[in-house]
Design a protein around this nucleic acid. Structure first.
Lengths: 213, 213
DNA sequence: GACTGTGAAGCCATTCACAGCT
DNA sequence: AGCTGTGAATGGCTTCACAGTC
């Protein structure tokens, strides 16, 4: 088997390209060059071409790329030629925001369950869902063929939730809790750490004011 | 002047180390080795030492690092030896969640203003803040000496908000809108793109099921 | 003996530059 | 002439391996 080794940064940009292409398509633009994509998303043209080259030849020399075709290819590569059901654990403010985040729907993601261990939150309505006790977690995951879970609980509870997710058969976790999760190799985990991003900003601001002394 | 060129990945990890060290400190642990830090946050021991080496020598050979000292150093490096006032633009679900996110307070970040252009949201209470019209934006930024703004509006409005932030004197932006912002070089921007992270997961899940055919 | 600090090596991602096609 | 596709060159981050210190 040809083992496709693609840099994660490339996958990240592919996701961004695909959204940009959707925008072009919606605006009725049918052809685009690597330079225009680069301009639109803030990378170099060579980078765009190299990224796409990992997956095939999608363009026409001298002309560029067909927007609709390339859009479909990128979506397919990202696995977005199907629906994905998601579950969210944690019905606090962040969990609520994620459960109702419109950006997910647009990209074919569907939240099918929201869970919390806090008895005061169970039964609460979020959109057309009801917050459930974690007792129902494994069953709902099975019924809806869920593969991805989102963790939006405080750090102390995150590992326990991850364990439950893995035991219930999820293959991928998006973790918003600021802790390193311990999971088997086969489980894909990506962290979104809100404070870290802010601290990159403060680092740079602090550096800058130190330099101007 | 010695120009300190530090990889962004190093800054990211520094932020993670510092939080881990806070946890150790809270648990009364006073000494730690690079191996223990590595274990705790999921990187290699050499990486930990290399990262710290960008900023000085903080350990004792044969012994390790003093937790409290190293914690303070890392916080200082990240610019967290002071308070930072933040403003959030966008009082939708995401803006609301960010405005009330406890993780920010813990790290010395303080949300001092939440704004929206939607007249139905203005006046709404979020914690002890009131959602304000953008008319008040420049004034509040000045009064509270704000340097960092968070964008939590739909993609169409993001660039306009960024322009206002820059005109009002902010030096750094954390952008949750899934678009590339156009800003002058001096303005620091970092993007948090929720869909992108999910799509890295679907990419890997799709890849995996393709490989097992 | 244990663990840090660091030059060197290795590895990976990005950029360059140009051949190839329309 | 214009733009893609790609091998080669570059640059940057991570890992290695060991000298230095307690």
């Amino acid at each position: 088997m040809k083992t496709l080794r693609v840099p994660e940064a490339t996958v990240t940009r592919l996701s961004i390209y695909s959204r940009f292409l959707e925008r072009l398509d919606k605006n009725g633009i049918s052809n685009v060059s690597s330079g225009e994509i680069a301009e639109g998303v803030g990378v170099s043209p060579a980078q765009v071409r190299k990224d796409l080259a990992y997956f095939g030849e999608f363009g026409t020399r001298g002309v560029g790329y067909n927007v609709q075709d390339l859009m479909r290819y990128t979506l397919k590569i990202l696995g977005l030629n199907r629906h994905w059901s998601l579950v969210v654990v944690g019905a606090g403010n962040l969990g609520f925001a994620l459960s109702t985040y419109h950006g997910f729907n647009i990209r074919n993601f569907n939240i099918v369950g929201v869970f919390d261990s806090d008895i005061t939150k169970i039964g609460k309505r979020i959109g057309n869902l009801e917050v459930l006790s974690l007792d129902h977690f494994p069953q709902l995951v099975q019924e809806h063929d869920v593969h991805i879970g989102i963790i939006a609980v405080p750090p102390q509870g995150a590992q326990e939730v991850a364990d439950l997710m893995i035991k219930s058969g999820l293959g991928a976790i998006l973790n918003f809790a600021p802790v390193a999760l311990n999971v088997p190799d086969k489980t894909e985990v990506r962290n979104v750490d809100l404070s870290v991003k802010l601290e990159i900003l403060t680092f740079n601001l602090a550096l800058r004011s130190a330099q101007s002394l």
